[in-house]
């Protein structure tokens, strides 16, 4: 693990962002600051429209903040994307339907190949096999279930060994049974490939299950209301759900969310 590096991970400082035309701008992010250390799993949770995706997109280099800075491993986001240091898992798998599973996972290698030098590229086959997709390498996305497609999308984000992983509600389209399996699969994989992870979710149990810290955001304008530590020991298994610590944490997070939502309606 490279926790020794002083700048490793994500550093968001005082980021503000407004949308809309001149004169009718709405503030979506208001002075947001957040650091995610190398190897740390941070979930972001909050009411719909509070700016979670916007925050994630500023870290991904898809949106420029109006003010404030975002640094990834001590570099600007722009430099970080140039070096392919950011893996993105969007809300839908967003696979190319005309390419096989294997070719979809190879995409990050094919694109921007200059940044492939000096990095620990993984074998796409191996990574897919470890995701339980060994039998699906030569299938097309249309032949896979939603859960399998999402796993391919995660494999695509891991395969080029980025230092930061950004996931925007990757499991939200799946049914509850499937979601649990995907969470545990992700956790399993991440446990042996510790990246800095920013994970946007609407599910409290999901956030607790996966994270080291949970960032609760409030809306109007989007801000960080509270950061909750999740001191549950790792590796975590499905048994965590049944523990008292888990239930206490769940109560705490839900209470914080209620406060945040209450503010909104007041």
């Amino acid at each position: 693990m490279e926790t020794a590096q002083p700048h490793a991970g994500v550093h968001i400082e005082n980021v503000s962002k407004s949308f809309g035309p001149e004169g009718a701008r709405t503030l979506v992010l208001n002075h947001v600051s957040l650091s995610i250390k190398m190897g740390e799993f941070v979930s972001v949770i909050g009411p719909s429209g509070c700016g979670k995706s916007t925050l994630l997109k500023t870290v991904a280099g898809l949106i420029d903040a109006d003010s404030g800075t975002v640094m990834v491993d001590g570099m600007t986001v722009k430099a970080a994307t140039k070096n392919k240091m950011i893996g993105l898992v969007p809300q839908s798998p967003a696979l190319l339907p005309w390419r096989t599973v294997l070719d979809n996972v190879r995409l990050p290698m094919r694109v921007n190949p200059k940044a492939n030098a000096n990095r620990n590229l993984r074998d796409p086959r191996e990574i897919l096999e470890s995701f339980g997709l060994g039998a699906a390498l030569d299938k097309y996305p249309g032949q896979l279930s939603g859960g399998m497609q999402q796993r391919v999308a995660i494999a695509r984000a891991f395969v080029f060994d980025p230092s930061v992983l950004l996931m925007d509600e990757p499991f939200s389209a799946l049914d509850e049974m499937n979601r649990d399996a995907q969470r545990l699969g992700l956790l399993d994989f991440w446990q042996s490939n510790r990246k800095a992870v920013m994970f946007v979710t609407h599910s409290v149990p999901e956030a607790i299950m996966l994270s080291d810290r949970i960032v609760v955001m409030g809306a109007h304008p989007g801000h960080i209301a509270e950061v909750i530590d999740v001191p549950l020991p790792r590796p975590r298994t499905i048994d965590v759900y049944a523990t008292d610590e888990f239930r206490d944490l769940e109560g705490h997070v839900r209470e914080t969310l209620r406060e945040v939502m209450g503010q909104k309606s007041a």
Binding site: L62, L96, V111
Partner: peptide, 16 residues
């Protein structure tokens, strides 16, 4: 759009 986001995060060129 989401596939496009993935490409942009990889700093894909317009040609790519």
């Amino acid at each position: 759009d989401r596939a496009l986001d993935v490409m942009k995060t990889l700093h894909a060129s317009r040609w790519e």
